[in-house]
Design a protein around this nucleic acid. Structure first.
Lengths: 116, 116
DNA sequence: TTTTTTGATTACCAAAAGGTAACTGATTAC
DNA sequence: GTAATCAGTTACCTTTTGGTAATCAAAAAA
């Protein structure tokens, strides 16, 4: 009754891979969090995420724009500011990312002392 | 009332990073799914995940054993079989991974035609 | 006028990740 | 004897990733 065919086994892999293509890697999720927290500008985002370099941020933002997770708007003005904003669609990822966060919190309690 | 300090902003990043350290990268989640589906042996796992190479699988399994996501048992016998089994602890990740899968399914509907 | 700042991009080079194929060692099938 | 299977390991080489620093453009400060 629980027997799965080879193909069925793989059926879970495809959607997971799709998701990882969108938000996989070290940075994309962290960038989304930063944007959801209200950061808008390149330097702002860069500073909010330790260890993230200029070049990698630029590349990740490009990817994410292509994937419709963010929009880029150039605001004409004195020092020319660029605004990155998370799309509505990106917000469908909040539940997933919240779960990643929750697990991380519990894991940390597991690894380092549990207070009780 | 909704204002967040810089430090609070980062507070979400740390647990997410912790989680990604455990199951980040292209393969670990897929390997877990394969194991949960019942695959136990090296070649079995390898064959169940397209594009996964021997070398990478060996490395990932090592990492995952260190991280207590799986256990490795060598079954003495004719062609020497090794069994990989997901730990109980790894199962605490099932909810997270299920969310990744759900999102991927919906995303695919979004990208390719929605049937309705 | 020269320097500095902010925002962002690009070139250059180093490090890490990853693929392929060969090989080990034991056993079973042909 | 020959070939194939299982579970890897190792060597070699390519691709990807990533860091640093230089650069561009425009404006404000000196």
């Amino acid at each position: 009754m629980k027997k799965k065919t080879h193909t069925e086994c793989l059926s879970a892999l495809i959607p997971v891979r799709d998701t990882l293509d969108m938000i996989g890697g070290k940075w994309k999720i962290l960038i989304l969090i930063s944007l959801w927290e209200g950061n808008k500008h390149f330097r702002e985002i860069e500073r909010s995420i330790p260890k993230l370099s200029t070049k990698v941020l630029a590349k990740e933002l490009k990817d994410m724009e292509e994937n419709k997770l963010i929009t880029r708007t150039v605001v004409n003005g004195f020092p020319v500011r660029t605004e990155y904003t998370p799309t509505e669609y990106s917000k469908t990822l909040q539940k997933v990312i919240k779960e990643l966060q929750n697990w991380g919190v519990k894991h940390r309690q597991e690894v380092f002392g549990k207070t009780k």
